[in-house]
Amino acid sequence: MRTATLPLFPRTTGRTKTRNPGTVTDNLWRAAVMVALLALWAALSVLTDLVASPAASFTALVELFADGSIYRHLNATLQAVLIGFLIAAAAGFPLGYAIGRSKFLGAVFDPIVAGAFAIPRVIFFPILLQVFGVGVGAQSAMAALAAVFPIMVSTTAGVRAINPLLPKLARSLNLSPLQTVAKIYVPAMAPSLMVGIRIGFSIAFINVIIAEFFAARAGLGLLTLRAYGQLDLPAMYGIIVLLALIALAGNLALWAAERRLSRKA
């Protein structure tokens, strides 16, 4: 059985049993790990000037929120991530579905998709800058270009993993094509789709930040770079923490959605 070689987390594709990330002892352990990490951070900050202390970083972050200077950049980054992700989804789902459904299209495009995945997409950013100019447009395009791959690949895998009896069932019930897709295929593919969405989100996020490092008018990546340039280390670390929190929040939200979806399915 020829499945697309998924260039993604192998564990979470296809037959995901959604893990419950929330037993009490597990969360206690996680809290312990967090405390350990914070302690390590604090120790490092004492040892070297190049690392600002957790306290100073948090303070700096709060100040950025307090004086409102951060909102412009926060908006720019979040906008780019969201727009990029939506474009990737709008393109990735249909394409992935088509490639998955048709044996022929799969045979044609699987190697192309796999090959394209191996190319560092960042290298095309200058082109996007030429087309969109410096700004949220270019960052969104970058995010879209990068995130379309995991979404496409996981959709393809999800389609291919559908139990072959299901289409037969749909025909025997005389469902219209639209009904078939909506009532049978989508729920069957939901776990794979959710994984693709989660990974797509992460990749969109990373690529926006990277793009902002290269050229941007606003954004958290740019802010980090500026803070570094001004040797404002507490601010820099504060923003890094903020970015980590955004990444974590996004993933947890999507995880929760994944769980609810598979409970209904």
Binding site: L50, I209, L243
Partner: peptide
């Protein structure tokens, strides 16, 4: 157990551009 406990950290780490630690 280690995998279960660390999973959120790993996933977050994966989503964070490690490039942010470049200055350090």
């Amino acid at each position: 157990a280690a995998g279960r406990i660390l999973e959120p950290f790993i996933v977050t780490g994966y989503a964070m551009p490690t490039l942010l630690f470049y200055p350090v």
